[in-house]
């Protein structure tokens, strides 16, 4: 299967237009691999990673072409290092695609789904730092049981928090964020959670606003 064009979410700097739908697009984009998994096919991981890196490569190329460079007096200018990174980015993208295709062929030949999906043939995932901290079976049987709904709910809760933070103020926005994430993570005591959330947001307001003098938005409370 081929992936659609990389979505906005793969650009780290595309926050100039941060509407929620863009973020959700990204979520949908990433939502595909589980379906892809239904059919025996390539490791979705390799294609997804290739797509993300291709997105970065496109962003880099675009930025480089539109770079309004002031020439440096001596030595390499401001476009020098970005050029190196662009080359590296496309090289990596091609490598990842080739790798994914090869994996798919190998899987097709065997007629099975590759064992340990996502494990690149170049080295496996054992001990890959900072991202396989769970016991291995917790984390590496990717796709199979990824709960996209929960992850998207967390992201949506956070996005809503950002939108309402200044208009509603810290206490209400913070309460919403805590409550929303707790619900997304499967807590079912809705009312009790609301109390906990309100308490946490209030404690933060008192400790950081009143205590340390940090500036937390008052929002609607400031209008009274």
């Amino acid at each position: 299967m081929s992936r659609p064009a990389p979505g906005g979410g793969s650009h780290p700097a595309s926050a100039d237009e941060p509407p929620t739908d863009e973020r959700l697009d990204d979520g949908h984009l990433a939502d595909e691999p589980p379906q892809a998994l239904a059919a025996p096919g390539p490791s979705p991981g390799s294609f997804a990673v290739a797509a993300v890196v291709a997105g970065f490569a496109l962003f880099l190329t675009y930025g480089l072409l539109t770079l309004d460079a002031v020439e440096a007096e001596e030595g390499p200018g401001p476009a020098f290092v970005p050029t190196l990174i662009v080359v590296l980015a496309w090289f990596t993208t091609v490598g990842l695609v080739v790798d994914a295709v090869r994996q798919r062929r190998a899987a097709a030949r065997r007629g099975t789904h590759p064992a340990g999906a996502g494990a690149a043939p170049t080295g496996g995932t054992t001990g890959a730092p900072l991202q396989v901290p769970g016991t291995t079976e917790d984390r590496t049987d990717e796709g199979a049981r990824t709960d996209w709904r929960s992850a998207l709910l967390v992201a949506a809760a956070f996005a809503t928090f950002i939108v309402v933070l200044q208009p509603l103020g810290w206490i209400l926005a913070g309460t919403w964020l805590f409550w929303g994430v707790a619900q997304a993570l499967g807590s079912r005591r809705r009312l009790f959670d609301l109390g906990v959330a309100l308490a946490i947001a209030s404690i933060v307001q008192l400790a950081f606003g009143a205590g340390l003098g940090l500036n937390l938005p008052a929002g609607v409370l400031g209008a009274f």
Partner: peptide
């Protein structure tokens, strides 16, 4: 451990790091 995925991570990091005004020329 995986050369390709490590490279992918490096590319992402370099890209994020290069964002901003170039301190030497103001570009």
């Amino acid at each position: 451990d995986s050369a390709l995925k490590g490279l992918a991570a490096l590319v992402i990091g370099f890209t994020i790091g290069v964002v901003g005004i170039d301190s030497q020329t103001g570009t």
